[in-house]
Amino acid sequence: MRRDWKFYSQLGLTVLLCLFIVIPVGMSALAGVTVNVFKGLSSGLTLRWIIEVWDLYASSIMLSLWIALVCLAVTLVAGVPLAYVLVRRPGRLTRLFEELLTLPVAIPGLALALALLITYGGVSGYRSSWLFILTGHVLFTLPFMVRSVAAVMSAMDMKMLEEGAASLGAGFWRRFFTVIVPNAKPGILAGALMVVTLSIGEFNLTWMLHTPLTKTLPVGLADAYASMRLEIGSAYTLIFFILIMPLLIAMQALADRGKRASKRIDTAEDTL
């Protein structure tokens, strides 16, 4: 097929725009492994900054991962049953509850953090522990888990599946864990990845809630940029990138798989 000038001009524009976005990422990554960023690449490549970041901020990175995992556990335990109730018992009350649940997404993280500080700032043991940050993260990520799970749950006929299982003698908890949860798995997985990604990257809220002893990964990053050499901040970004990329790719892959599954139509013939 012959392509005319329109095709090439559009391609050119697209490539240009992509470069506009990608080049800073590449530059930043490169800066993280350059000996001296002001002298440029001629100064040579090194892993020194990455090692230095690790030495300085390993605890922040580990704390972030820990909070993300605990946050995931909490949103799973609370979010899956919550989604179930919202889908299974639709009504004015559940609608209201769903709105309330989504509120933390709409409200600026700063405001949410202020509210938490005003309310619990005086509880010293709580205020200074990582649990305070966890609270913020759970508030912020829970709606994403609930939404994701509820979407899958409302696509299956839960009432009928449950009646089928109940007629075979299965009680509520058995039905929930052997029929409802396995069939909601795509939504639970997507929600889980979303929660972990959001928790690791959350800055607004966390920045307000953290103490010098409870710094998370993004807070540490801001700190590094503000008070260290540019190379260290860049190396930090590189580490952040390496952590978050696999999660984003997994999320994308999961979404693709979901799309393919829903596209697959009933191809079996009624030969019996």
Binding site: M156, D157, E163, A166, G169, N183
Partner: peptide, 20 residues
């Protein structure tokens, strides 16, 4: 008695089979 205890077999119009 709830359905779980009644020992009834049910067949539904839309099958109600477990997709998992």
């Amino acid at each position: 008695q709830s359905i779980e205890k009644r020992r009834v077999g049910m067949v539904f119009q839309s099958y109600a089979l477990f997709p998992n």
